[in-house]
Computed example of a mutant assay.
Amino acid sequence: MTGEKISSYQLGMIIISFFMGSALVINPAVAAKQDAWFAFLFAWIGGLVLLWLAIKIAELHPKKSLVGILIDCFGRFWGKLIALAYGWYFIHLAAEVIRTYANYATTVSYPETPLLFFSVSYSLVVIYALKVGIETVGRMSEVFVPFIILVIIFTFSASLSSMDIRNFQPVLSQGFLPPLKAGFTTMTLPFGEFFIFLMILPNLNHQDNFKKTSLLAYLIGGCILFTIVCRNLLVLGADMLARDIFPSHIVFRLIPVIDVAPLLDINLIIAGVVKTCICLYASARLIIEVFGLLNYRILVLPLTAFAVSLSMMVRGSVIEQITVTMEIWPIYSIPFQIIIPLALLVLSLLNRKNSNYNRT
């Protein structure tokens, strides 16, 4: 295992930044229109269940990463095979984040610039951060996440004069199904992705704090995203919220007197870089554990290059990316976020019960 360590506070900041990632500009809850707040709350509660699932699994396998847990529960062959599937999922997630940033930049700021330029430029920062080490990602989150929170508080306050409480109405006019569907999508992106932090757990210097840190960071990150959803809905209204590709950008542009839109760009870069770093670090650590390699850094460049290439292939346009995010990604994520974790919990509990029985 790596000797790199991060503090509980740094882990908390990484989790918050990870949740914000691309969700700062794209949030599937907006598909529920005026019930976006309800869809988000449903997602938040559902994600809390998945968080408890991950924490419980970690408690049953102390000091082990996701790879070790999978091997304990499924055996060496199947455990490693499923671990490699998770490695693919993490790389795919990194590619999605890279493409989101590149699409945002070419849509709202630099429409004449090639998409590949932003993907490569963004990835160079990721490569540098991972080459230096996961500790650097922790320190970066420690410094910049409070700045992101301050920006969100400022934009919410500055938008108060443009808000209309009537945009929350009519409540549940189309029934429960549309907000529940949008809520499930939001649960899988980003809350259900917390399972990736089982690959980061061995880096925590005080692992007893994992549960407390994770829950607190989850609540703070959820509050931030809920604030963003409510702010955008109150300012833009249900129809415009659902139509706009990047509603947060429109809200930033509507703030009077000063142009604060560049702050959204900065926030997206910071949170997106952290999320991409975690995805690629987790996949690199996973691969070296599966194949018995010594240093994950040798994989950083090829994995990042592969993620950039994948990001250029997975989507044809911004509209297609939004459609796939809403319709396909939640289904695609079910095995990784729900089915396999549930199987791990059941098998872990059975193994623990059998172990206790054999001792007696």
Results as ranks from 00 to 15, higher is better:
residue 79 G to Y: 07
residue 316 G to L: 09
residue 135 E to V: 04
residue 297 R to W: 04
residue 354 N to Y: 10
residue 209 N to E: 15
residue 327 E to K: 15
residue 46 G to W: 11
residue 316 G to R: 15
residue 150 L to S: 12
residue 214 S to C: 04
residue 210 F to T: 00
residue 152 I to V: 14
residue 338 I to H: 04
residue 346 V to G: 02
residue 88 W to F: 15
residue 97 V to N: 08
residue 257 V to E: 03
residue 8 S to D: 07
residue 264 L to E: 11
residue 129 A to Q: 02
residue 231 R to Q: 14
residue 7 S to L: 08
residue 147 F to M: 15
residue 88 W to R: 08
residue 126 V to H: 01
residue 109 S to L: 14
residue 75 G to S: 08
residue 149 I to T: 09
residue 310 L to Q: 11
residue 248 S to D: 07
residue 358 N to W: 12
residue 290 V to Y: 12
residue 198 L to W: 02
residue 222 G to Q: 10
residue 306 F to Y: 12
residue 41 L to I: 14
residue 35 D to S: 03
residue 90 F to K: 00
residue 25 V to Q: 02
residue 136 T to K: 03
residue 343 A to R: 10
residue 13 M to V: 00
residue 12 G to L: 10
residue 148 I to F: 00
residue 67 V to Y: 12
residue 112 E to Y: 05
residue 65 S to G: 13
residue 27 N to S: 11
residue 338 I to M: 07
residue 216 L to A: 09
residue 124 L to V: 13
residue 7 S to F: 05
residue 19 F to D: 01
residue 196 I to C: 02
residue 354 N to E: 14
residue 340 I to C: 05
residue 2 T to M: 06
residue 142 E to F: 05
residue 32 A to M: 06
residue 25 V to P: 01
residue 161 S to W: 08
residue 142 E to A: 05
residue 168 F to S: 05
residue 358 N to Q: 14
residue 56 K to S: 09
residue 190 P to N: 07
residue 251 V to M: 09
residue 247 P to H: 11
residue 144 F to S: 09
residue 237 G to C: 08
residue 168 F to D: 03
residue 301 L to H: 04
residue 66 L to Q: 09
residue 94 A to P: 05
residue 166 R to H: 11
residue 19 F to A: 01
residue 314 V to Q: 15
residue 251 V to N: 08
residue 199 M to D: 06
residue 164 D to N: 15
residue 298 I to G: 10
residue 270 I to L: 01
residue 118 F to K: 08
residue 131 K to H: 13
residue 275 K to Y: 00
residue 259 D to Y: 09
residue 262 P to A: 06
residue 234 L to T: 02
residue 266 I to P: 00
residue 191 F to Q: 02
residue 169 Q to M: 13
residue 136 T to H: 02
residue 264 L to D: 02
residue 20 M to R: 04
residue 279 C to Y: 12
residue 317 S to D: 12
residue 217 A to K: 14
residue 109 S to F: 14
residue 204 L to R: 05
residue 319 I to P: 00
residue 93 L to P: 00
residue 131 K to W: 13
residue 193 E to S: 04
residue 226 F to K: 09
residue 88 W to V: 08
residue 195 F to Q: 10
residue 139 R to S: 06
residue 118 F to E: 03
residue 287 I to A: 11
residue 238 A to C: 05
residue 286 L to Y: 08
residue 326 M to T: 09
residue 141 S to I: 08
residue 173 S to G: 06
residue 159 S to I: 11
